[in-house]
Write a protein that binds this DNA or RNA. Sequence first.
DNA 1: ACCGTGGACGTTTTT
DNA 2: CGTCCACGGT
Length: 784
Amino acid sequence: MNPEKLLNELNEVQRQAVVHTEGPLMIIAGAGSGKTRVLTYRIAWLMLHNIDPFNILALTFTNKAAREMKERIAQVVGASEAKNLWMGTFHSIFARLLRVDGHLLGYPSNFTIYDTDDSEKLIAQIVKERNLDKDIYKPKKILNRISNLKNNLIIPQYYDRFPELFEYDEAAKIPEFKNVYSAYVERCFKAGAMDFDDILLKTNELLGTFPEILAKYQDRFRYILVDEYQDTNHSQYIIVKALANKFENICVVGDDAQSIYAFRGANIRNILSFQKDYPDCKIFKLEQNYRSTQNIVKAANSLIAKNRDQLKKEVWTANEPGEKITIYKALDEAEEAQYIAERIMEWHLSRQMDFSNFAILYRTNAQSRALEEVLRRKNIPYRIFGGTSFYQRKEVKDMLAYLRLAVNPNDEEALRRVINYPARGIGQTTLDKLTILADRYNTTLWSICENALLYSRDLGSAIAQKVSDFATMIKGFGVMAKKESAWDVAEHIFKTSGLLRALKEDSTEEGISRLGNVQELLNSIKAFNDKQLELEADNDISLDYFLQEIALLTSADQDDKTDPNRVSLMTLHLAKGLEFPVVFIPGMEEELFPSAMMMNSRADLEEERRLFYVGITRAKKKLYLTFTHMRTRYGRTADCEPSRFLEEIDDEYTELIVPGIRTTGPTFLGGVPNLDGLGISRPYKSNFISSKQTLPPNFPPGIRPLQPSETPAQKLNSPSEPPPQGEFTTDAHPGDRVYHQKFGYGKVLSVEGTGVNKKASVAFDQVGEKKLLLQYAKLIKVTS
DNA sequence: ACCGTGGACGTTTTT
DNA sequence: CGTCCACGGT
Ligand SMILES: Nc1ncnc2c1ncn2[C@@H]1O[C@H](COP(=O)(O)OP(=O)(O)OP(=O)(O)O)[C@@H](O)[C@H]1O
């Protein structure tokens, strides 16, 4: 392909960024400004100018993004060349590197990758062995701290250099933390395992310790590109810096306004220090948004302007104004889901838009349940990304544990998981004995199992035999795994380990589905086999390689071969980098979004706001924001307040829809008895759902459930005067005389806030001054 | 050693 | 509400 043709699809700044191939380069790109396109074309451009793809390293946020970029590049330069690019996530690229050179650090090339579950279990085990209180040394908390430390390259040996770390531990009542950390690191090492953070940490260790290795990769990766640079952590930053140090052909692309992974160590400062690290770097700013309508872009701008910490950017678009953003108030999560499903069907039917045009983006995975239920009921095909993935199911993990053991029997977590599943008479007591023996002889659990017969005195000869038999079986699997294909090994293991038999025994519905899940895993191994043989040059169909691949799948990597015509459901985090014509963001409520955990500091709140910004800017044509009146959480329903973020969007770009009660006749306002607080639930819902008729946009909601703060005394405190005739209003002005169903008559003193959070201070004749959210208050303006 | 049940706890987000 | 773990009975 002619290089010039490539450039025609770019604007001036994009073009400059693509052709500026040498030296450090930073692209600060607004949402939807085509940074992915620049990155893609830049790589194609390099290749068209005879840069060897083997010398190009491109780090993306998901494997899927890498795959898509590769496909696009393949269209330009041909698939056989594009295949040779080093392109993938930090984790998958550097795991690959560690497979080759990790032996220098004492790791086997087939090291296991521990997932969060494995890590937490190991920590729990260590805490137990050390007789520490598991309620204080919570595995989640401990792992989180370890992860933080690793991402900042603070290994246990360095811990002593930072007295403030000990101070923190003392204050947090976990004085033993450092020892737990050390033990964790040691146990992982002995198990031949790395956790997610180790992949980056050990890469740093490798590059930092062995100059010849560093030189090797510096020479290999002459051109380095990093996508989503705002979400790289310190460990990643140091790797990139080291690799780029020789040629300085480094190009990073990012948007500080889309930094949403601080919780896992991402550091916006990496963007800021780029200029310091490379004083002669070139910086390009992309500010024209090609993705969204004017309304969406301007709404997003008005929101993000509320953040104090940000680089200055003017994102604009030449696109049409488009529709306003719809803000909808729902009764509860079921009705919210129903509203969304109805809108999807409406668009689908009236404009022949297939279901892949829609995305529902939520703050927490738990929100997907209510949505799924309604979508399923309405026969709307959907796909959920992330959440509890297939590979996290118990039965699947059990099967995987056997496979892992076949490849690396030192994998302690896998061993613990299946040594007695299915039951073979090796119970907790035995396991504890084995653990003690391993500790006593300073060896691994596996090594004790392997030589169990030598420990008959400690274990009892019957038990020792059972353990030995188990070890023999695993060794057999290991021998097979070295010679045969992943699929052959997996099938053999499934049949002979006893797993198949155990699953078959359970004929409950649950049990059948579990068997099905393991079958599905086997199918995916078969598919992997076939794919490797057909498409990949290396022909690697080993079990080893299969396990590597799946360990580093990201939530976004789900295969999209099976019927792509589906609505996408995912968290806002996972939606980064994607785009959809129509986007729904449900759960726009205080405590949920922003999350209650993120409301306590400015930095946290600003990250939530950026997350919302990311969500808004995923939409191309139309955006719906919905919030509910009440929501079930932990099985208990609670009242909700609209998210503060809703009022932070300039209301010029939004329209609020609040459905009301459809009633017949003129008796409604005066004649319907007030059931508030009497413990009688009015048949509100049926009314609600059938009331799709024309109502004024600001029609107030009907019944408000009892607020927790309402005491019985208050409930009985009804106004003595009769209610006036007139319509509910959500608007009020100082000086207005108003009527409230519970508090009676009063005078508006002042009004604050806007949109759904508009509040009025009212001096009531009977109960004194109250602050009311106008959205809920059901005030009636009295003409007098 | 195994299996059932009750109570505690948890949801923020992910490689 | 659902999951995980500890405990206790078999
Ligand atoms: N020069 C251009 N002309 C027309 N359309 C473009 C141009 N550049 C990018 N686009 C389109 O704009 C949309 C957004 O591009 P892209 O996904 O690359 O943006 P982005 O900067 O990665 O967005 P974000 O940071 O929000 O994820 C895409 O649909 C892309 O095809």
